[in-house]
Design a binder for these strands. Structure first.
Lengths: 249, 249
DNA sequence: CAACAAAATATTGTTGACAATATACTAAAA
DNA sequence: TTTTAGTATATTGTCAACAATATTTTGTTG
């Protein structure tokens, strides 16, 4: 917490911003964000039990704020609460993931539709550059380079849609899907070429201002991703390990 | 655990259920539900400040569970929190309502698409009956009878879609829209005939199993509703009061 | 009387303590 | 050895007190 370095003569902006952080955010918010980060990043893995006292101790706060953060995380679908037993990082089953994919498809479809109508030239330019880099990563079968591009691609589109309520719901859904750890497996290099083609078509539709087409393409893009996941999961443990290894490298 | 009541010879059902309620739900959950109910019903009106101590006193609990419930409600979009100032029933602006309508359209579109594929004969039968009653209410311009039918109609469709994740997100969105108090105004008798026609077309598409059509119709149905709202709001204070009165009666 | 300053009050933020429940452990019996 | 009952420990649920911050009231000054 104490960013105040006694050595430094001028406790200027650095100190002020630290104060501002505490002025704006309560301990509950800080705890919530930190746990969110740990869950999303996989640092806290699915199914893990969150011990109130332990977390409170690590973050140097009392159990109150931790419990409040738990309620928020529960509502946002990142953890599940069992009365008198504790809270656990949510495990998303295959069936749930399937359902969530459908919801994401609908929201992404809307994003495409709106983005095609409202996107700014600068944003379109960024999309084109990303697709270009995706092609390169695709040719090199470089998953490590591809996935951040994929995330950025959808982030730009979400932004371009210009609908805060939509973006908020979308983000929550995407977070939930990321809980489905096995999804990582699906992020094998196999799906990259097809996915890249999808992205290119989407950008073209958006560039044309064809909202209906862009919406449909994005809708199908998400469901295609779901099917790719399905196929990888059915390919058996051996291939799965292999696919996962490709990613891990 | 000890169900053995030395005094009572027959630990009756009423008592058992009360015990079960406390076994399953924490005070936080109870507070959350009660506040949800009051907000949705309008008993707590938009913008109202929620006083921790006051609510805790009314519900006979301490402030802890109330604060936890606040965090959950905040996350679900029903209240807004200002640090060191308190929590307030969320006020949804016209702009926000517009955005939320778009999200609802997308989700309702998905509901239509899925319901057309998965609906059960019994559910379809219920939909047909509702539409029949809607026609009656429409002819009589009976808003009081119409609106519950409308709610039930969409509830059945949501159920028929058979996607829990979807239904959950849908419900949250609808709750948020209900915070837009002025929406009530839009529920004037004027929109009933058009809305009824929409519903009839939707049922037909669902009955045919035409998911694409049902989805599109529901998507447009929601956006039509938004436009009807827009028109009523632009019709000026006089007409607005008149329209509201029609509903209130 | 208006505007400002300062005290008094009310409200939220945080903490630690206690109660209720679940889990882990130990020992006795089959 | 396995099972089970009972006990000890750990963890969650709830509460009340304290600290920090906002709001209101009061009083003073121009």
């Amino acid at each position: 917490m104490s960013r105040t370095k006694p050595v430094q003569p001028a406790p200027t902006t650095a100190h002020d911003t630290a104060i501002d952080v505490l002025r704006e955010h309560s301990l509950t918010t800080l705890v919530q964000r930190e746990l969110e980060r740990q869950i999303i990043s996989g640092q806290l893995e699915a199914g893990a039990k969150l011990n109130e006292a332990e977390i409170a101790g690590e973050l140097r706060v009392s159990r109150g704020p931790v419990r409040e953060a738990f309620r928020a995380l529960d509502q946002s679908g990142l953890v599940r609460t069992e009365k008198n037993r504790g809270v656990f990082v949510r495990q998303v089953s295959l069936e749930e993931a399937y359902e969530i994919y459908e919801v994401r498809a609908a929201l992404d479809g809307l994003i495409g539709r709106l983005a095609a109508e409202r996107i700014l030239p600068a944003q379109l330019q960024r999309l084109r550059e990303i697709v270009k880099r995706m092609h390169a990563a695709s040719r090199a079968l470089d998953a490590q380079a591809y996935f951040p591009l994929n995330i950025e691609f959808h982030a730009i589109l979400g932004e371009a849609a210009g609908n805060r309520a939509l973006l908020q719901n979308y983000q929550r859904i995407v977070n939930e899907l990321n809980l489905y750890r096995r999804e990582v497996i699906a992020r094998s290099t196999e799906s990259i070429p097809a996915s890249t083609k999808d992205h290119e078509s989407i950008v073209n539709a958006v560039a044309k201002g064809d909202g209906a087409l862009a919406g449909r393409l994005l809708f199908e893009h998400v469901l295609n991703g779901r099917e790719r996941l399905h196929r990888v999961l059915q390919s058996g443990p051996a291939q799965r390990a292999k696919a996962a290894q490709k990613v891990a490298t």
